[in-house]
Design a protein around this nucleic acid. Structure first.
Lengths: 356, 356
DNA sequence: CTGAAAGCGCTTACAG
DNA sequence: CTGAAAGCGCTTACAG
């Protein structure tokens, strides 16, 4: 291959083996500017033959445009920086997957950073991220919504936007930026309606103790949906000990049952993980989930088909939400705040058979 | 704040609001080079007071070093590029999480790219990635091991290494690069031993039809472990239709059972997902998993506690593997190939009670 | 220890 | 349509 290189290009190739646009240009016998324009598909002012020649040379030489160099001239890198609490959480993984797909379609790469730090370190992380000059910063609003609390964080993000950066939230609608909203409210509303259609008349709510945005949205949606559908809702007292875990679901359900007999024919649980605990608690109390009492989770991130009975849940379209976040990020900034919302989809499984 | 800026810095700040090292330097009254050295913690040739002043100014002005610019001068970006088949797969998510953690400790960012493309597009993806001049490229070897097949891919990767890049594999040990090995063989070996200790004497193997590296490693480990432990292994015929899914596990198990009576007291399944199908198939045949026959999965990526009975499995230390891949990537290249291997851990749950 | 200068690999007006 | 030049924001020998 080196016999194809003209003298100058060959000399450079010895020093640093990576081939540069300069190599391509001299090898193709054109100026640097022309080579640059030839490589840019959107640039029109290039003779067709010239472009073809440059492209051919670039390919032959194995030219890989240095995106860092490009980024320093244009001012921003071809990346979307995503701040994710924990990628192992399937909730986040789905958001990220949707974002990656859309980003790739736009020729962008997604950068992932964990943010499960002590609070305050988030600010440092954002600063690091800003150093990358990404096209946009996408925040996966955590389920617990802890981010909105820090005003230092907010200031850092706003300063980033003033610098021309874009901040987009994928998650709950509680930060002052463009946001792709996870349709919790709609989903919960829809769930109430669906359960009514299946014949449920009285639902018990199982929720974690903490007053997080996601729980609030779920509860509001459910209450409104139930009211509209004419379904009764029983709100158990919430013990301060109830975490958003399977054990939390177990505890909350056990407490609910021991509060004495109620006439609920279904239990709606704030998230799928807790719902797994609910299934266990029911069985521990001698009740068969599905047959004796309906159970519905929320979020559809656990492999709900794998539990017995299959767990009715709500699919929050998380991948679409992640993709939408990227699309929002790519649109030009507008003064007012935008929000995009998706439809949720109830997925009815054996845990909520029709109640005739 | 702008009243703190000297004339020149202020003038620039109007044009592009992002503050640059030049701004910091002039505001601190030092040369650009000095400012650069002051910001670099490893640089020793800076007077302590000067460094303090520069740092103070940088902080006050909200300076965020432009990593693209830095990357174009130094030749590589402060990133680790990870090529992942599908981030939603908990297997990959765990690898990525481990990598992110270690990368952050080294001041690096992780870039994630999906590779669930048509084959051949992987090459294009790698080329794009190379454009970023990442510190290293980490490949999550897919479970199916399809990557090793493409020689074009291999050539692209090798060319990248010749350019000074580093390629590291996190997964199976079948590519000619440094690799952090997922301890499938050891894990399977260990599982066989553990089951023997629990009293199992004869194991039936349930595996997918495809001849993938992960399956091979599992099977080899299991056979060797069983031999060493004195456990008999029954190898069912493998139907060409058996996929590595829950349904595949169901089908394979059903076929195994219908092959007539065997005296196996346990079933070992190539992965957790298939094992879920095995549980179902056993129940469909009137056998209670755990009580009537033991079942063990592999990989411990499904939330094995959530199925009934809890599924005995093998934890492959995937996070450690992901972290190790980054560490390998950060070590200086050596001519010979390196491999790092972790210990697997068997997790015994109710699906394999002691057989007395 | 420090400053001025050259250079990293690109892009983009500017004048042909 | 094209080339030469200036510039993006840094780092790093080089000569003080």
């Amino acid at each position: 291959m080196s016999k194809n290189l003209s003298g100058e290009a060959q000399a450079r190739a010895v020093k640093r083996s990576t081939v540069t646009l300069r190599d391509v240009a001299s090898e193709a016998g054109v100026g640097l500017g022309t080579a640059s324009r030839a490589m840019d598909p959107t640039s029109q002012y290039v003779a067709t033959e010239v472009r073809a020649r440059v492209l051919e040379v670039a390919d032959r030489l194995g030219y890989r445009p240095n995106s860092s160099a490009r980024a320093t001239t244009t001012g921003s890198a071809p990346t979307i920086a995503m701040l994710v609490s924990d990628i192992r959480d399937p909730y986040n993984a789905q958001l990220v997957h949707g974002a990656i797909d859309k980003a790739r379609a736009a020729g962008l790469m997604v950068t992932i950073t964990g943010a499960d730090d002590v609070t305050g370190d988030e600010v440092r992380t954002i600063r690091l991220l800003r150093g990358q000059r990404p096209r946009a910063l996408v925040l996966t609003s955590t389920r617990t919504g802890s981010w909105s609390s820090s005003s230092r964080l907010l200031r850092e993000l706003e300063s980033y936007e003033r610098d021309g950066g874009r901040v987009v939230v994928a998650g709950d609608d509680d930060l002052p930026f463009d946001t792709a909203v996870v349709p919790r409210h709609e989903g919960a509303y829809l769930l109430a309606t669906t359960l009514r259609d299946l014949g449920y008349r009285s639902l018990g709510l199982i929720r974690p103790a903490e007053d997080a945005p996601d729980v609030r949205a779920w509860e509001r949606g459910l209450l409104q949906g139930a009211r509209a559908a004419g379904v009764r809702v029983v709100q158990p007292h919430r013990g301060p000990e109830v975490a958003r875990t399977r054990d939390g679901g177990f505890a909350a359900t056990a407490a609910f049952l021991s509060d004495g007999p109620t006439d609920v024919d279904g239990l709606v649980v704030a998230n799928d993980t807790m719902a797994l605990g609910t299934l266990r608690a029911l069985r521990a109390a001698g009740l068969e989930p599905g047959r004796d009492i309906g159970v519905a989770g929320f979020g559809d991130v656990v492999d709900a088909d794998d539990v017995t009975p299959g767990l009715t849940s709500v699919d929050l379209s998380l991948e679409a939400v992640g993709g939408a976040a990227v699309e929002l990020a790519l649109r030009t900034a507008v003064p007012e705040r935008r929000r995009v919302e998706f439809v949720a989809r109830t997925v009815v499984r054996d845990s909520t058979p029709p109640r005739i």
